[in-house]
Design a protein around this nucleic acid. Structure first.
Length: 473
RNA sequence: GCCGCGUUCGUCUAGUGGCCUAGGACGCUGGGCUUUCAUCCCGGAAAUCACGGGUUCGACUCCCGUACGCGGUACCA
């Protein structure tokens, strides 16, 4: 922990290389929760040092995903902060300075890595790093980092001891030992002058006074490099915790090919941010009282880094969907309406329907309760309530015509247009024609099932109901 | 290949040497409620705790090995 300020500072460090990944939200959740539990700071640093994989809108899209789920950061490129800039591409001089320090201390060395040889062909000098064998055609090495930057043919590598082992303690997994023979002399500064991830994280985590490093397990193999760098700089290393990565149903690392990894997909389907967070919290962690449904606030209170399990969980959409349904059911009518309006903001038909339902005296107190228990995701609202204010398909047949005639007669006779009266009318017709309820559902709504019919017809109103029936005549 | 991490019902998990003939949740399934579909309520099937050796009076829990899965082995993060 930061000695001077005793402040908990945790961060996520996404790369802007594509769409917002659910794994980023997963990491953000745990980092956010632990920071907030300890009145600390949650920081977002953008690691955009790979210029070839950079995607234009990706940074924006990451933040819009974080905003959507409600994990707001305290410091970031867009918010600024004491340790700005928070975008690695804007911190190049800093890395160059520390690279030079390593070089001065004799803990790093230049390696010849030209893109092409004299004939213009790509040359493979990859053996140089491992064996340090002399190549006769290698020009003299640059003297300083700024010299290196001029040529584009050199990289800076870190030195690694030839013999021995290094033991690191992971907060979740305990002691991990690595043999130096397995640790490569990692490139620190690429020939384009950008740092690799390894130089970048170490320098930035230290400078930004990160107190706990909580990241995915795919970083475990690079731990010894990072520890070495901390030692080289003479810095104290924060405690590290490696969480397990989310998996596909076949246990491979969660990927687009097999599951849904794009946060925007969940958003478009009508999953609720709170449900997603709740579900994610339960992957690798469990509530002390084995509760399944709890708020972000409760998670923050109960969560502890030491309770994270190292087992890589499979992302199970079925359970998320159940959880989403639970959240929808527990919403107040007002919350539901707000969520639906936001969700259907770009669909004028449904937006209009929602407004009508909200203001219609027949439906405003009735509809939301009916709809709540029948929706797993917001997207399903459309098929549930769509028929209220739009045309329904009419399938003409002799049978339907007869039923419609009886229906018209019986419904017209109802004086007081309410559930009980409508239901008894419908029941009578069910009996007379020896048919089941779904037949009537189809006649009235175009679907064989849906919201309770009597209530739906009350909402629709007597006139519109009869108009629908008459279409079959 | 080498190195590292992991292994409890199909899935998420509880379990830190005796409370475990392994508990909960999702899913599946039987039933109740019911005007359809849901919700809700009650019940059931489902893990020889990956396997094999130790240690111990006693092991899901500790140690070792094997198998399997995953990750790393990049001028990607």
């Amino acid at each position: 922990m930061n000695k001077n300020k005793l402040e908990y500072r945790l961060r996520i460090a996404p790369s802007p290389t594509g769409y917002p990944h659910i794994g980023t939200v997963y990491q953000a959740l745990f980092n956010y929760a632990y920071a907030h539990k300890n009145n600390g700071k949650f920081i977002v640093r953008i690691e955009d040092t790979d210029r070839t994989r950079l995607v234009n809108d990706a940074e924006e899209v990451i933040f819009s995903a974080l905003d959507w789920v409600g994990l707001f950061e305290d410091e970031s490129p867009r918010k600024g902060g004491e340790f700005a800039p928070y975008r690695q591409s804007e911190r190049l001089e800093i890395y160059h300075k520390y690279a030079q320090e390593l070089l001065d201390k004799g803990l790093a060395f230049f390696d010849y890595y030209p893109k092409t040889d004299a004939t213009g062909k790509k040359k493979d000098y990859s053996a140089v790093a491992k064996t340090a064998t002399e190549h006769t055609d290698i020009p003299p090495a640059p003297a300083t980092v700024s010299d290196m930057l001029k040529s584009q043919d050199w990289v800076l590598r870190m030195k690694v001891p030839d013999e021995g082992t290094i033991t690191v303690t992971d907060g979740i997994r305990g002691k991990i030992t690595f043999d130096y023979k397995q640790v490569s002399k990692q490139i620190l500064l690429k020939s384009d002058g950008y740092p690799t991830y390894h130089l970048g994280v170490v320098v930035d985590d230290h400078l930004m006074q990160i107190s706990h490093i909580l990241r995915a397990e795919e970083w475990i193999p690079s731990l010894p490099k990072h520890v070495l760098l901390y030692q080289y700089f003479g810095w104290e290393m924060p405690v590290v915790y490696h969480t397990a990565t989310l998996r596909n149903p076949d246990k491979s690392k969660l990927s687009k090919r097999q599951g849904h990894t794009n946060v925007n997909w969940f958003r478009e389907e009508g999953y609720l941010p709170d449900a997603i967070l709740n579900y994610l919290a339960l992957l690798g962690w469990s509530h002390p009282e084995e509760k399944e449904i709890f708020s972000l606030q409760e998670f923050i209170e109960k969560f502890d880094l030491n309770d994270i399990r190292p087992i890589a969980p499979i992302f199970d959409l079925t359970k998320l969907t159940w959880m989403n349904q639970q959240y929808i059911q527990n919403m107040s009518d007002e919350e539901l309406v707000r969520a639906l309006k936001r969700f259907y903001a770009n669909d004028p038909d449904i937006s209009h329907t929602i407004e009508l339902l909200e203001t219609n005296s027949n439906s405003k107190n009735l509809i939301w309760g009916l709809v709540k228990t029948r929706m797993e995701i917001l997207k399903q609202f459309k098929q549930l309530a769509g028929h209220f204010f739009q045309e329904i398909p009419v399938e003409k047949s002799e049978m339907n015509k007869q039923i419609a005639q009886s229906l018209e007669k019986s419904l017209t006779d109802i004086d007081s247009w309410n559930n009980e009266n409508i239901l008894s009318s419908l029941k009578q017709i069910l009996l007379n024609y020896k048919i089941k309820m779904p037949v009537l559902y189809t006649i009235f709504t175009g679907e064989p099932k849906g919201l309770p019919l009597p209530e739906s017809l009350v909402i629709l109103g007597k006139d519109k109901t009869l108009a629908r029936v008459r279409k079959y005549l």
